[in-house]
Write a protein that binds this DNA or RNA. Structure first.
Length: 587
DNA sequence: GTAGGGTTAG
């Protein structure tokens, strides 16, 4: 359709509108569109400016405007034939979460006349919906049946939403269409493999990429892959390689991956180096994601004051910033401060999500505030619209359990609207250990082992409960089941970074040069905690050799023996011992 | 001109 009266150069509006919309100035874009229509510029086709206007309306969440533009398109005779208008509308309805409208529009397109871009828009729209993979795969199959060519964009929309089993066949499809070597597609495949834990496949893809196709995103995806799969040593190794390979410069996303690994390892010194590097780059200064990663680093390494300073100085805080800080106070036993911060978050108008509530409940649990925790748990649905998930139940079972209310914890599990999972029964089992309840422990163990038959931790826990109760028959039985199922006790290890040297401790480990002093220290500490000097003497005499010494206790004792009062001791436990050979952890 | 890959908290 041509609308033309005015004298100004028509196509200028088209170009300006696109640029303005692309720059994110959507209000201006819509104003310009209205202006162009009203003044009917010559040689200006509505079809050339309508797609940008439609997408601007969607970007501003203006459903009525999108619907108006839709009817304008109909009146102008642009639907369903104009592929650009059609695709923009499909994309707009998808982004406005009006998927039914998108589907209805798509159905009006004559079969096999729909362009690739229309399918792509609809697939992306379905990918935004919570349970979408069947619908998406159906769309893709229909595309192939109707011989509509697919492209890289199709795969980028399809792959992240596809179920794990569909990834390898889709990889094959991409390969045969000569799309698997397109950087964006191979990066996407890499993250898909990462997400399902297929780290080796991801690495293989990474290694197979020729250097000129390996871009910053490829490096970031591989680093995040290692980080998310807990392979800390590999993260630091790859980051090191990246820094020495001149072609790409790390960006904020790279550093977030590395920082999360430092947080996981408690590698405070490396993390601080990265923080220092960041502080010299003004462009990183306003990156909220990066600040959140730094908060998490300091929180996990025990430097709450530094974490809080970063938090306080942030120009913008997201719910992630608040949650990281609340969780930090919670995990270090500052329950009151955690709740104060939570109240403040509510005050500034941030509505907590499920994860924020997990951090609140666990702060209550670790801070011994059972009543407060129960209050938050029972009110969170009405107050904040957070429906309790299994993670919340696990927190509350832990909370009741620690407080000695084992029966109530059991009743809560029984009353759950969904089936309890391993961590929930595990929390009850842990509470049984604290309160020495063998009967309930046996019941909880039976359930937890049905759900997680190979989780060695639960066997060890029950064995220790029997051992505490002097029930050696039980200990033997648990050991027999473990043997029968081919399960081996994971050697728990803890380490301390002291003066640039890493000191590793295993449970009941006597190999350290200071072993004698360390064991003395543990016994003293235990006696202090129990406020029972009798125990110190008795355990010392009767236990030869000494057993039941957690690796973590040994590491803490070592730290206390070798540092000044008030010095920071960071103990990291239960990591795969392989991380200790990492290059960055050496002095 | 349309569709779009990598990022933090539990």
């Amino acid at each position: 359709m041509r609308v033309g009266v005015s004298s100004s150069g028509g196509h200028l509006s088209t170009i300006r509108l696109r640029d303005i919309a692309a720059a994110g100035r959507h209000h201006e874009a819509l104003d310009l569109f209205r202006h162009a229509l009203r003044h009917s510029e010559p040689f200006l086709s509505v079809s050339s400016i309508l797609p940008s206007a439609i997408l601007s309306a969607a970007a501003l969440s203006l459903s009525p405007a999108a619907a108006q533009l839709h009817s304008l398109a109909l009146k102008s005779g642009l639907l369903p034939a104009d592929p650009f208008v059609l695709t923009a509308l499909l994309s707009a309805y998808s982004r406005l979460r009006l998927l039914p409208l998108a589907c209805r529009l798509f159905d009006e397109v004559p079969s096999s006349a729909a362009p690739t871009s229309a399918f792509n828009a609809l697939i992306s729209g379905h990918a935004l919906a919570p349970v979408s993979s069947p619908a998406i795969l159906a769309l893709f199959l229909r595309m192939r049946r109707e011989a509509v060519p697919f492209d890289d964009v199709t795969l980028l929309a399809l792959l992240p939403a596809a179920p794990p089993v569909a990834i390898p066949p889709l990889h094959g499809v991409a390969f045969r269409a000569a799309l698997a070597s397109v950087s964006s597609v191979s990066n996407c495949l890499l993250s898909c493999y990462s997400r399902v834990g297929a780290v080796d496949f991801a690495r293989q893809l990474f290694d197979e990429m020729p250097d000129h196709r390996k871009d910053l995103i490829s490096w970031n995806a591989m680093i995040s892959c290692y980080a998310q799969n807990g392979l800390a040593h590999q993260v630091l190794d790859l980051f090191d390689t990246m820094e020495h390979s001149a072609s790409v410069e790390p960006n904020a996303v790279t550093l977030i991956g590395v920082l999360s690994t430092c947080a996981y390892l408690g590698a405070h010194s490396i993390g601080r180096k990265i923080e220092n590097y960041i502080s010299q780059k003004p462009s990183f200064d306003s990156n909220t994601y990066l600040k959140n990663a730094l908060i998490n680093l300091h929180v996990r390494c025990g430097d709450l004051a530094r974490a809080r300073t970063i938090f306080d100085e942030m120009p913008q805080r997201t719910i992630v910033s608040w949650t990281a800080m609340i969780a930090g106070y919670g995990m270090h036993g500052h329950g009151e401060e955690a709740l104060r911060l939570f109240d403040k978050m509510i005050e500034v108008g941030i509505r907590p999500d499920g994860i924020a509530m997990v951090s609140v409940l666990s702060a209550c649990s670790h801070g011994g505030m059972a009543d407060k925790g129960m209050w938050y748990f029972s009110s969170m649905k009405t107050a904040y619209g957070v429906v309790p998930s299994r993670a919340h139940y696990a927190c509350v079972v832990d909370l009741l359990g620690r407080a000695g209310q084992l029966k109530e914890a059991w009743k809560l599990i029984e009353s759950m609207p969904v089936e309890p999972d391993g961590p929930i029964w595990g929390a009850l089992l842990g509470a049984c250990k604290i309160h020495k309840n063998v009967e309930l422990a046996e019941l909880a163990f039976e359930r937890v082992i049905e759900l997680e038959p190979t989780n060695v931790g639960y066997y060890v826990l029950l064995s220790n409960i029997y051992s505490d109760a002097g029930r050696l028959d039980g200990v033997a039985r648990v050991r027999a089941i473990m043997r029968q199922r081919g399960l081996k006790k994971d050697p728990g290890c803890s380490y301390v970074d002291h003066k640039g040297k890493v000191h590793l401790f295993m449970a009941d480990d006597h190999s350290h040069p200071q072993a004698k002093n360390i064991y003395e220290m543990v016994l003293r500490l235990e006696a202090m905690v129990k406020n029972d000097s009798e125990m110190y003497g008795s355990k010392r005499k009767e236990n030869l050799p000494l057993t039941g010494f957690h690796s973590e206790k040994l590491a803490i004792a070592f730290g206390l023996l070798n540092t000044e009062a008030g010095a920071e001791i960071v103990v990291i436990k239960n990591l795969r011992c392989s991380v200790l050979s990492g290059p960055l952890l050496k002095p």
